[in-house]
Computed example of a mutant assay.
Amino acid sequence: MQLIPKSRNAMKLWSIRLAIASAALGAVEAILPVWQGMVPEGVFASIASATAVAAAVARVIKQEGLS
C-alpha cells in the first residue's frame, strides 16, 4: 500500500477535517445516553450526517493553496 502524493498535506483538506468531525460526532452519539434529557433526541445524528455530506462535497471542490 502506498500513500497518495503529498499525503502530508492531508490535514489541510476540508474533506479530511469534516470526515474526522463526523466520526467524532458519531462517537459522541454513542455515549449520548449519559446526557439523556440534556440534548434533544437526534441532534448529534443530524449534525454527524450533515458533516459527512459536507465532507463528501468538500472532496470534489478544488482547494487552493495545496499545490
Rank of each mutant, 00 (worst) to 15 (best):
M1E: 09
M1N: 13
Q2G: 05
Q2Y: 08
Q2V: 05
Q2E: 14
L3T: 05
I4C: 11
I4T: 13
P5D: 01
P5N: 04
P5L: 08
P5C: 11
R8I: 10
R8T: 11
R8Q: 07
R8C: 10
N9W: 05
N9Y: 09
N9T: 09
A10M: 06
A10L: 09
K12H: 13
L13H: 14
L13K: 11
L13G: 08
L13Y: 12
W14S: 04
I16W: 09
I16F: 03
R17Y: 05
R17N: 05
L18A: 09
L18D: 11
L18I: 06
A19P: 01
A21T: 07
A21C: 10
S22T: 12
S22I: 14
A23Q: 14
A23L: 11
A24S: 05
A24D: 07
A24N: 07
L25D: 06
L25G: 04
L25P: 03
G26S: 10
G26T: 14
A27Q: 14
A27I: 14
V28F: 13
L32A: 05
P33V: 03
V34D: 02
V34T: 05
W35Q: 03
W35K: 04
Q36Y: 01
G37N: 00
M38Q: 00
V39C: 00
V39A: 00
P40Q: 01
P40T: 01
E41G: 01
F44P: 03
A45H: 06
S46Q: 13
S46V: 10
S46I: 15
A48Q: 15
S49W: 12
A50E: 08
T51C: 10
T51M: 12
A52H: 07
A52W: 14
A52G: 08
A52T: 15
V53G: 11
V53F: 12
A55V: 10
A55S: 15
V57Q: 08
A58W: 10
A58I: 02
R59N: 08
I61L: 03
I61G: 01
K62G: 02
K62C: 05
E64Y: 03
E64D: 14
E64C: 04
L66V: 03
L66D: 07
